[in-house]
Design a protein around this nucleic acid. Structure first.
Lengths: 145, 145
DNA sequence: CGATCGAATGATAACAATTATCATTTAAAG
DNA sequence: CTTTAAATGATAATTGTTATCATTCGATCG
């Protein structure tokens, strides 16, 4: 929290109640890949709430400060997720075609593929995004029963 | 072309000039990952043109017929690309951070990773989407000179 | 062929997500 | 406290996409 204030101060941004509230919601729901609208609704349940314009502005700011990332799950809806300190890299997503559940997924196994992309296409890879579509553990078990 | 007419007839859709025109544009520009708006503008340059609503409707139809795919390059814009018969699988994308060029990329090397996802997360993978971000061959060469 | 009929089209309204505007409020520094 | 630039909220504007509906058109059948 003080960390957040310092990051803001460094670039002469102010720590406001609204900015803290948005960050808190994202921290609390870090597994849930919330949309801007969902964040706005969760904030409305608290005293005061935060205007939708401020939600969007804050999300842009947090992204610029590299505290959150936009997530595109190819459902035509932009989602946001906070970066956890425990993560080495950007993580990826396992998307269940049956129940829609989205699970995060850490991975370091694409290095050989990136090397091959360089050799074959002359393209130097710096980052990657991977989405796997399939059936999650829970739905597999339901199917069995 | 007759192939297209047959595919439409099979499901009692009609072959119209507009549908053919949209498919032609996508065939002609198959490397370019066009947005609906870009397709509409290209069609306007031809005699008559096609209404924007029809462009969207036709894109939905072509996707349902599995003749094209939507592409999300994480720039908040939906793009469309025709399926080429020569492709075994869905392809992936190399996105240049410098010039924005998007190159297609065929890949079959994720199978071991999918196996590991199953062992580690109990998630059974059926499909995947991969995007690599970096610097393309052309920009690398420019940098060297 | 020409008539028929359901499907397709185009113009535009409606809608959803996001951004811009601007008067008012507020955080931070002195 | 005051001051001042930045932030906020309400709302207008914009963009991308879908829905509506009167008109047009492709395919089938006689």
């Amino acid at each position: 929290m003080t960390d957040f204030k310092e990051k803001l101060n460094d670039q002469s941004y102010k720590l406001t109640g609204q900015r803290q509230a948005v960050l808190d919601i994202l921290t609390l729901h870090h597994e849930e890949h919330l949309s801007a609208d969902q964040i706005h609704k969760l904030l409305e349940e608290q005293k005061g709430g935060v205007g939708i314009a401020t939600v969007y502005r804050t999300l842009q700011l947090l992204e610029k400060l590299k505290l959150i990332s936009r997530i595109y799950l190819d459902d035509g809806c932009t989602r946001y997720q906070i970066h956890l300190e425990t993560e080495k890299h950007e993580h990826h997503h396992l998307i269940c075609n049956r129940c829609g559940h989205v699970e995060d997924f850490q991975d370091d196994l694409l290095d050989p593929l990136e090397q091959q992309v360089f050799e074959q296409y002359g393209f130097r890879v710096f980052d990657h995004r991977v989405k796997f579509y399939g059936i999650c553990r829970t739905c597999l078990n339901v199917q069995v029963n």
